[in-house]
Amino acid sequence: MELSLATRTVGEHTVLEVGGEVDVYTAPRLRERLLELIDGGARRVVVDLGRVDFLDSTGLGVLVGALKRLRSAGGSFALVCDKEPLLKIFRITALDQVFPLHPTVDAAIAADPTVSGA
């Protein structure tokens, strides 16, 4: 399935819904979109991987890039993922210790330490 990208705003958060296959061919489009969002001023970004059915090392590299960029800008970055095959990928690569991973968008937003009053 082709990559799909849709953005919505939830309070102070920008939620990027990703679907389809994120691989060496499509990952550059995900990188571009994340850069557009960050360059456009988004500082609290949640990437929802709920509709992703394939994710490879290139896609993971793009997500780590966004995490580092936002952290150095004083922002936050979190992932939403509740599919076991994808979670296994995060565990095997040790990236489950790098990304905040949440089962739902609401949980990701509620757990954001940069939100005032959270």
């Binding site: 150095s72 040790a94 990236l95």
Partner: peptide
């Protein structure tokens, strides 16, 4: 493969990160 500290290191290039993650996936 890279450990969590190495993965989160700001100095790690995108290429090195993707290569390390790719190898971790193959080996895993």
């Amino acid at each position: 493969a890279l450990n969590a500290d190495e993965l989160a290191n700001e100095a790690l290039t995108d290429e090195a990160l993707t290569t390390g993650v790719g190898f971790a996936l193959l080996a895993g």
